[in-house]
Design a protein around this nucleic acid. Structure first.
Length: 415
RNA sequence: GUGGGUGUAGCCCAGUGGUUAAGGCGUCAGGUUGUGGCCCUGAAGAUCGAGGGUUCAAUCCCCUCCACCCACCCCA
């Protein structure tokens, strides 16, 4: 016996309605905002992530599924979507398209992590990216799209948090201030944070240890150190969000784990926050495309985990429409009827009507039970008498009403 | 990677150091001759997560491993 690999799950027929629902809502909201679908490979050259995602990130340092293929190339199963999209943007000369280029994707994502509720080694993301536009209006649009998406799913309680972490011009000043501040409080920090102080000061801000939180609460805030341009950008973003009526909270301790973020970062959380609860996370990555070999090009986007969305749909008791059943079940009695049943099913399908026939002969009782269990609304019954008369019996499963009809009339009656 | 909890049929679960491991849901089949959903009856389905150990004997005790859940970490 084999099990699915650790941290992976099978998406069974019983759950498909949720997946299709989320996918359809996502595609619809993207269409409403003018974002176009792009599908990308699930593995990429390892270097793309080392450079793009960033060498110091946890993702690159300890979570990638990296392997050599038979041609001795180092490949990596996508640990996130953004670098792939940027690679495709460059590879296909999308700088020459009207800017911004607005894309969305669905992709499995692979990270070697310890599985937990809402955290998997293979999960599925819906993501969008807007490339080639620096104006804060696009930041607001991306956030707006995320907001509308959650709303369209019927999820009621969620909150938006935003922050600005500055740009390469102003961030050094802030980092310096942060380091100086923390230098005075080293003794109060947890072991992890002492390491972070050396490696990635920003991360100190979102440590969950009570001692560290107390220190972080008093720490200098990035928004107080923004350069003129970054500050203006952040003010504009807030204005645009107000314009479309999206409530937000500025969380000055919001930092994201990827190296490439600049200026805007944001997260959407369900109201009752738990440890693996972030529904949507994103931000601006103006340096990324240059890092992977393009001309300096601004970009912003977000990622959204299907599994967590569906967890919340279920938690909020949102009922989704089931994947529709075929319209008709064809029951037969005897070999001659069987022949007719198979031919009839085929011709109904050609007329775009879903039809199911029992594959091995069974009692009529068993066949109707099967129809019932499949949720099929109509049954056609063919016995020897019907074959002789060239008719069939049409039964409505909900009302139990039956009538004798000509096979040729069925498409009209069933459609 | 660290710590804690759990692991009995497809699902939910009872149970015991020793003859055929209980029940519910679901599945399948019957309840007379060609009719589903309710009800009744019956059947199939479990090497009691895996491996090792203790014991005359282990699903139950011990160890290891694996998986899932929870927290840390990280993130979607």
């Amino acid at each position: 016996m084999y099990n699915s690999p650790r941290g992976t799950t099978d998406i069974l027929p019983a759950d498909q309605a949720y997946w299709r629902y989320v996918e359809q809502k996502a595609a619809r909201v993207c269409q409403l905002f003018g974002y176009q679908r792009i599908d990308l490979p699930i593995f990429e050259d390892t270097g793309l992530f080392i450079k793009g995602t960033g060498e110091t990130t946890d993702i690159v340092q300890k979570e990638m599924y990296t392997f050599q293929d038979l041609g001795d190339n180092s490949l990596t199963l996508k640990p996130e979507g953004t670098p792939s999209v940027c690679r495709a943007y460059l590879e296909h000369g999308m700088q020459n398209l009207p800017q911004p280029v607005k894309l969305y994707y669905f992709s499995p994502i692979f990270r070697y992590e310890r599985p937990q509720a809402g955290r998997y080694r293979q999960h599925h993301q819906f993501g969008i990216e807007a490339l080639g536009e620096a104006d804060a209006a696009i930041d607001a649009e991306v956030i707006n799209l995320a907001w509308q998406f959650l709303g369209s799913l019927g999820i009621k309680r969620f909150n938006l948090f935003i922050n600005s972490i500055g740009c390469p011009q102003c961030r050094p000043t802030y980092h310096k201030a942060l380091r100086e501040y923390y230098a005075g409080h080293v003794e109060k920090l947890c072991a992890d944070c002492k390491v972070r102080l050396e490696r990635n000061v920003l991360r100190l801000l979102d440590c969950k240890q009570p001692g560290c939180q107390a220190v972080a609460a008093e720490a200098p805030k990035s928004i107080d150190y923004l350069c003129l341009e970054c500050d203006e950008h952040f003010q504009k973003l807030k204005n645009y969000l107000g314009l479309v009526g999206i409530p937000f909270t500025v969380n000055t301790q919001l930092v994201r784990g990827l190296d490439y973020y600049a200026r805007t970062v944001f997260e959407i959380q369900p109201e009752e926050e738990k440890s693996q609860s972030t529904l949507i996370g994103g931000g601006r990555y103006d340096g990324l495309i240059e890092t992977i070999g393009g001309k300096p090009t601004p970009g912003i986007g977000f990622g959204c985990g299907f599994e967590r969305i569906i967890l919340n749909l279920k938690k909020e008791g949102i009922v989704v429409a089931p994947v529709p059943s075929p319209q008709v079940f064809i029951a037969f009695l005897g070999d001659n009827a069987r022949t007719e049943a198979i031919k009839l099913a085929s011709s109904l399908r050609n007329a775009d009507i879903g039809a199911v026939v029992t594959t091995s002969p069974k009692s009529l009782k068993a066949q109707l039970r099967q129809a019932n269990n499949l949720g099929i609304p109509k049954a056609v019954i063919i016995g020897e008498d019907e074959v002789k008369a060239g008719v069939v019996v049409l039964r409505d499963m909900a009302t139990s009403q039956q009538s004798t009809v000509k096979p040729a009339d069925l498409p009209g009656l069933l459609r």
